[in-house]
Computed example of a mutant assay.
Amino acid sequence: MAGPHRIGHAVTQGPNVVKEIIYGITLGLIAGGLWKIHHWNNQRRTKEFYDLLEKGEISTVVEGE
């Protein structure tokens, strides 16, 4: 006679809450860092523009036709 048959089943677990929180914090920090870099680049461009404008190297007014 055959012995008892055991069938292996995949164990389904719910989400690992700690891991999900860590993933969320990590993604949030990465997105925040990229946003901050974008903001710093815009500030740099604006500062360069006003510096050039003040030096007279560029103008926002079309001079005589």
Rank of each mutant, 00 (worst) to 15 (best):
M1T: 02
A2Y: 10
A2G: 07
A2N: 13
G3N: 04
P4R: 00
P4C: 03
H5L: 10
H5Y: 08
H5I: 15
H5W: 04
R6T: 10
R6L: 09
R6V: 03
R6G: 04
I7Y: 09
G8L: 03
G8V: 09
G8H: 08
H9Y: 03
H9Q: 10
A10I: 14
V11M: 01
V11H: 12
V11Y: 04
T12L: 09
T12K: 07
Q13L: 13
Q13T: 13
Q13P: 00
Q13C: 14
G14C: 02
G14D: 01
P15F: 05
P15W: 05
N16D: 15
N16I: 06
V17P: 02
V17Y: 11
V17M: 03
V18Q: 06
K19I: 04
K19G: 10
K19S: 13
K19W: 09
E20Q: 05
E20D: 03
E20Y: 00
I21L: 15
I21D: 04
Y23W: 12
Y23D: 14
Y23F: 04
I25R: 00
T26M: 01
T26H: 07
T26F: 02
T26L: 03
L27F: 07
L27Q: 03
G28L: 00
G28R: 01
L29G: 06
L29V: 08
I30P: 01
I30W: 02
I30Y: 02
I30E: 05
I30M: 04
I30T: 06
A31W: 01
G32E: 01
G32R: 04
G32P: 13
G32W: 02
G32V: 00
G33H: 01
L34S: 07
L34W: 03
W35Y: 10
W35N: 13
W35H: 01
K36M: 14
K36L: 11
K36Q: 06
K36S: 09
H38N: 13
H39P: 00
W40M: 14
W40P: 00
W40H: 13
N41E: 13
N42L: 04
N42T: 10
N42Q: 14
N42W: 07
Q43L: 15
Q43M: 12
Q43R: 15
Q43I: 14
R44Q: 10
R45W: 13
R45Q: 12
R45K: 06
R45S: 14
T46C: 10
T46D: 09
K47T: 12
K47C: 12
K47Q: 15
E48G: 11
F49N: 02
F49H: 11
F49T: 05
Y50E: 15
Y50F: 15
Y50V: 08
D51Y: 05
D51R: 08
D51L: 00
D51H: 05
L52T: 11
L52G: 06
E54W: 06
E54S: 08
K55Y: 11
K55P: 01
G56Y: 08
E57L: 09
E57G: 06
E57M: 07
I58W: 05
T60R: 02
V61C: 05
V61N: 03
V61Q: 05
V61S: 07
V62R: 09
V62F: 05
E63T: 10
E63K: 11
G64K: 06
E65S: 09
E65K: 07
E65N: 06
